[in-house]
Amino acid sequence: MKIDFQHKQSAHCENGVTSNLLRHYGYDLSEPLVYGIGSGLFFAYMPFVKVNSIPVTSFRPFPGIIFKRVTQQLGISIEKKKFKDPRKAMTELDQVIEKGTPAGLLVGVYHLTYFPGPYRFHFNAHNIVVYGRENGGYIVSDPIMETPEYLSYEDLMRVRYAKGLFAPKGHMYYALNMPENIDLKSAVIKGIKRTCRDMLGIPVPMFGTKGIRFMAAKVRKYPEKLGSEKASLYLGQIIRAQEEIGTGGAGFRFIYAAFLQEAAELTGIGKLMKLSEDMTAVGDLWRNFAVESSRIVKNRSAANGSYPEVAEILLDIADREEAIYKKLKNAIS
C-alpha cells in the first residue's frame, strides 16, 4: 500500500510537512509561503529552562504551530490525535493510510535510524509524513532528507514514543476537508501581523527582539559568570540552536526574506520587496555572529575578550530587526 505522494525536501521540517501535505491536496504553496503564513519566525532565550544543564535558545515557536496556523488560516479542517497506547497509535496510523490519507507525525530524532549520527540528539520536535506500508514497515517522507525513507514497525513506534521535553506521545495529524477556494492574500497579511506581534509585542524580556537583547546581555557576561569552559559550551549551544538542521537564526531570516518576496507579489505591496532585502542583511549578520562565536568556541582560552564583541553583533541585529518589524506592520496596515 503506497499513497501517491510527492516528497520534497525543505529547510525546516514543519514547513516541509505542511507544504508537502497541502500539495497532496492540490494547493502548491512554497516552503517560504507556508513559513510566513504560519508565522514561523520567533525568538526566545530562556535561561531558566535547561536541557543538559545548558539554557534553551529557540528560533522557532512551539512545535506543530506552523501546521496548525496555516491550516486554520486557509480553512482546512484537520484531525489531531495522541494515544496512550503505542500499539493503538500504530493501528490507527495503519487505518488512516489504508484510507489513502498521508499522515503527519511528531517524532523524536534520537532513534531515527536513517538520520546522520552526529545529529542524533534527544530532540523531540521533528515532523515527518508516513504515506505507505511495505514489508511490515513504513514509507516515510522526512522533509530533511533528499529522498523518501523507510522505517520498521518497531523503529517507527520507538520514535513516536520518544521521551523527554516535548514528548510526542504518538501525536498524529492529517487533513480532513479542503475548502473550495483559499484566500492566500489575507492569510499572508495575517501571518505577517502575527510575526510582528510575536517579535515586538510579548511583554516579557525573553521573547522577540527584546529576547535578543536579553541574550546579548547574558552572553557579554558569560566568561566572568561561568568560566571559560562553560561559557564556550553555552555559546556553542546558541549557535547549534541557530544553525542545526531544521532550525536557524540566519537560515530562518533568509526563508522569511524569500517569503516577503512572494508576499510582495501576492499582495501587490511593493514595500515588502525592500523589507525582504533588509531581512537578508539581518540574516547575514546572524551568520556573522555564528562565525565569530565559533571562533571563540574553537580557541576557548584565548578569547574571553571576544564575548562583548559578539554581544554587540546581537544588539545590532536586535535594532535592525525591530526596525524591520515596525516597517512591516506599517506596510500591511
Partner: peptide, 27 residues
C-alpha cells in the same frame, strides 16, 4: 541541506550545502 540564497537578479532560490565550518565546530 537546502539553503535559501539570493541569485544574480536578487530573487531567492535554493542551493544545497554539505556543511558550514562554524556549525561543524559547534557540533
Amino acid at each position: 541541506e537546502p539553503c535559501y540564497a539570493v541569485d544574480e537578479s536578487g530573487r531567492y532560490t535554493i542551493v544545497k550545502s554539505v556543511g558550514w565550518d562554524p556549525k561543524n565546530i559547534v557540533m
